[in-house]
């Protein structure tokens, strides 16, 4: 599966937030999006599944324009995982995961035994058995993100779109969520996620895209940021990226 974004521009009324933006995401890639507030990350992530309408064929999935696909077809290609939100009517973890099969159901159809069995497989795959019987209200933020990822797996979608999946999570849960996503990417899924934490982008992505004022200013492997002043320019303060003893990278504000 290939997601192609070609010369994408988008405006909210007169305010142009994305300018002639092009990029691709292929199977097995984990792409992190970095940029300041208002850089256009969330707009981009909402344009890809068609929540916002861009020009007809500027976003393609396997060569087909996303906006030409039905909602069900889109849902079979990609799953959107929002920032942590509290539902007014919180469901059980099991029911929340089961919701992922809805793209395969007709208008009046309900999930059947085969869907219930698939929920069990997904629960085991993401190691959620311990919380399967609980309500979404009573589990931690990190667990909630994992449940939403499990719901995405129920969709059988190969592209995971995560809008700031680590917001509001403690550091341990941030790592837990991204490690689980990395496991899935290693199994052939692809993922594009936005984050405000450059350290996570450096350590948990195969490619990093940096945006500034609606334009992509960097699109390469995270290691290519070593020695560059891209992040310093974007965040408007001196940031040094250094290698750690075990080969990782961290940002150091100077």
């Amino acid at each position: 599966m290939i997601l192609e974004i070609k010369n994408l521009s988008f405006s909210y009324r007169e305010n142009e937030v994305l300018k002639d933006l092009s990029m691709t995401v292929t199977d097995g890639e984990m792409v992190s999006l970095l940029g300041r507030n208002g850089a256009g990350k969330t707009t981009l992530l909402r344009l890809v599944p068609g929540f916002l309408k861009a020009d007809g064929d500027s976003i393609l999935l396997d060569g087909k324009p996303v906006l030409g696909m039905s909602l069900k077809e889109r849902a079979s290609y990609m799953a959107y995982i929002p920032q942590i939100t509290r539902s007014v009517f919180p469901y059980s973890v099991r029911t929340s995961i089961l919701m992922g099969c809805s793209n395969r159901l007709s208008l009046l159809q309900r999930p059947g035994p085969a869907d219930e069995r698939r929920v069990d497989q997904v629960i085991d795959l993401l190691n959620l058995r311990g919380i399967a019987g609980r309500n979404m209200e009573t589990i931690s933020g990190g667990e909630r993100q994992l449940v939403l990822i499990a719901r995405a797996l129920m969709q059988d979608a190969r592209l995971l779109i995560l809008d700031e999946p680590t917001s509001f999570l403690d550091y341990g849960n941030q790592l837990l969520v991204l490690e689980r996503v990395e496991d899935l990417v290693n199994q052939g899924y692809s993922c594009i996620y936005s984050t405000h934490n450059p350290d996570l982008a450096l350590s948990h992505s195969s490619r990093t895209v940096v945006m500034k004022n609606g334009v992509i200013v960097f699109d390469d492997k995270p290691s290519a940021l070593l020695g560059s002043d891209i992040l310093s320019n974007v965040y408007e303060r001196k940031i040094e990226i250094v290698r750690t003893e075990n080969g990782g990278m961290v940002c150091l504000p100077c």
């Binding site: 929540f51 889109r74 539902s87 919701m99 992922g100 809805s102 969709q155």
Partner: peptide, 12 residues
């Protein structure tokens, strides 16, 4: 009862 984006991303 989910957010509009979530419901639509589930193919509804």
């Amino acid at each position: 009862s989910l957010s509009e984006d979530e419901a639509r991303s589930l193919g509804v």
